[in-house]
Each structure stands twice: as structure tokens, then as C-alpha cells.
Amino acid sequence: MIEFHLDGRSGVAPYMQLIQQVRQALRLGLLREGDRLPTIKDVVAKVAINPNTVLKAYRELEYEGLVTARPGVGTFVARTLNEEAGAVEPLRVELRAWLRRAQAAGLDPESIEALFATTFRIQLQESA
């Protein structure tokens, strides 16, 4: 079972934060196929958010095929997000090599983050 939290200052809509936390838990293997997600009542009683926000997040996850809702029973994880796990490790090695070069070139952490974020955005725009 995972526990949700909300970052009030992130600028990301609350329902999207819940979705991202489920996806992240799936990637990290904290959630596996067949696991039950907390009920809507449990989530709102813990995080103090609108029930419709949780419902919206769960519906979206269902639409993506990541979870299945069984009425009266609960919402269950339908598949994991680990398929690309084989690709992740080599990419991480390359990224770390790149980060070492950035540090060696004298960039401070903030500059590295900014460089990554802006390049990533441009890349996304161009490939869209």
C-alpha cells in the first residue's frame, strides 16, 4: 500500500501529483501488479483533499491501464511500469558520465539542473 502526500507549492495540480506518485511507485517497484490502492476515503482522511481529486486521479490511471477498479472491492494495480527497466540502467550510466563532465567543467548544481531542464523542454517541444 502506498501513502500519498501533496506539495502545495509545486504548481502541479493535486490530482496529477497523485498520478505521478503512483507511477513513481510502480517504477520503483513499491507497487506491484495486484496491489490495492488506498480507498478514496482513506486518502482524503489522510491528506485532507477533495474526494473528487482522488477519483479523478484514479480514473486517469484506469484510463492509462495502470489500475483496474473493482466496484465495492477497491482499485488494484493492473500492470507495472518496469518494462523499460533494461533500458534504464545503461542510460543512467551515460547520464552520470555526463554529470561528471558538467561538474568538471565548473557548473554548479543549479546550473546543471537549469541546463538539463531547458534542454529537456526544447527536446520535448521538437519531438512533439
Binding site: 478514496i40 476515503k41 482524503v44 482522511a45 489522510k46 491528506v47 485532507a48 483533499i49 477533495n50 474526494p51 482522488v54
Partner: peptide, 14 residues
């Protein structure tokens, strides 16, 4: 505040 809102939202959900 947080406790109150948690109770209120739990009631609303149920």
C-alpha cells in the same frame, strides 16, 4: 485545521 479538514473530507467521501 488539517485534522478538521481530514474529518470533513472523509465524511464527504463516505
Amino acid at each position: 485545521r488539517r485534522e478538521f479538514m481530514r474529518g470533513l473530507m472523509a465524511h464527504t467521501a463516505e
